[in-house]
Design a protein around this nucleic acid. Sequence first.
DNA 1: ACACTAATTACATGACCGTC
DNA 2: GACGGTCATGTAATTAGTGT
Length: 575
Amino acid sequence: MFPITYYEQHAARLAEQYESLAFEEVHANLVDLLPAPGATVLDVGAGSGRDAAWFAAQGYDVVAVEPSDAMLAQARSRHPSSRIRWLSDDLPDLANVRRLGLRFDFILLSAVWMHVPPAARQRALRKLATLLAPQGRIAISLRLGTPDDERAMHPVSLPELASLARQFGLRTVHVSDSRDRLGRTEVWWTNVVLGLPDDGLGALPLLRHLILVDEKSSTYKIALLRVLARIADSAAGLARHEAESVVVPLGLVALFWLRMFKPLIEHSLPQMPAGRPAFVTDNFTSLFAVTAVELRIGSVFRDRTAKHLHQSLSEIAQVIRNMPANYLRWPASDKPIFEVTRRRQIPTPSPLQIDDIFLWSLGDFRIPLDIWQALTHYNVWIEPVLVAEWVRLIDAYCNDGRPDIRTLAHVLLAWVDPARDTGFARAAVERLRAAGKPVYCVWTGARLRDEYDVDHCFPFAAWPCGDAWNLMPAARQVNNQKSNRLVTQAALERAGDAIGAWWQDAFLSQGDGQRRQFFLEASQTLPLLVADPGTEDVIDAMKVHRIRLEKDQGLRAWEPGGVVKRSRAVVDSPV
DNA sequence: ACACTAATTACATGACCGTC
DNA sequence: GACGGTCATGTAATTAGTGT
């Protein structure tokens, strides 16, 4: 698609040429249109990394994308920066970028558009539009004049781009012409900046409608939406991205469903006006000994419990398919919003571990892209509305006059992992110390004595995740300072090696079972890009997720300080 | 090819709710 | 209060895979 070979062959020379110009020189027209520093920038076709580096130096978080590996290597070595995430990816799909789950305040396509074949441009611009944050801008420079045959260029024009932009609800914010900065008289440029006219939250009104207005004759619809919201928030890593939709394992939907309903059913809170829900079968009631907390990825079940669980999930999948997924329709339409594909039931594995293969074996659950995005980015606001509505429904169905029904429902609807908490990591610290191995604070490098805390790297209050990878040993005064704040990108970068060493000692060296569990949890909760991740990939994914939390929830930043830094710690720590 | 099982479809019933 | 729409749910028949 792209003339990658040309760039592969001439990477060094081209990089030299690009670097000879300053960002301000080339993009003078953009300077007034940029968001405030701290915003997230996507640089598509980053080339030598000159622009990405400029953004990073101004304090932006940058994702820089480049299809040519040689060029990418040039850029990486020229501009090492913790604020830049380099990715190999190309238009029109930008599959790797989309998997990051980020939305960008500013997207730059500098001298790229003429390389996109006209037939692919519609798709390319659609992708870019969906990656744009509310109030975001896309800057595209158009190369006009004589084409350069060596680089496989296609003609571009402002009317063509403007008409495409209109299709996706983008408006043209700014247009200006400039001469070629490399001094070529036969080439000149038109710089176009596009933006979303509205706030870009198209799916939120729809969700609001479904939650508050749509007819409901049971809690099924609300339950399904909350399951999806939880998956988008805490298990997005298992999702498969397609052009217009996101597909999650039907087994995961059923698992979360089972987990949410279980406490409610066990406390006899009615979920519909009469009778009990269809999925409460013998298989379901046989699971009474399984706690809701055990119903998560990585758990292992045997014998009859495994059989009952498998059957119950299968029945739930069927109920979801026939009921809420069938009756959640687009407004004024009889077309279902979600698409469910069931697969033939596999024989129950023995023992049954809840992993991605098992969850996919029940089928696919397809979610339209804009709804998925709204759930991913705004779950903080959506989920409380869902819970409130669920409580209201239960209260309405409950006519035996139980007084504290609402309070009870609220408590049972909470989604917590009390058993996992930090005890798991604390045990690992104790074990290491008993074996005579020193344990260090991952943030300061200080050796931990008797007084230490187990820190949720991403604050539990903002993102309740008790996965092993999120738990870090920290000096007590450090953890107190950090409290509910979010570690900065630079601090996370610095702590990378110490964190890797901690994981290795605490979890990964404890046999295949723990190792598998660790990566299973990580790939479930974090946007991991590779199939068979290592600790480096997990840390990379944490950096991306960190940016997401910062943008979507506006957490205050925290930087380790006030404690004497000992850089030797990393060297000290046993590998 | 055959038996077996699960999934799918078709059909029926009844509760509930808003509307006229 | 009749009426029609929306679902939940059960039953039975049909179809689609799977193992042998």
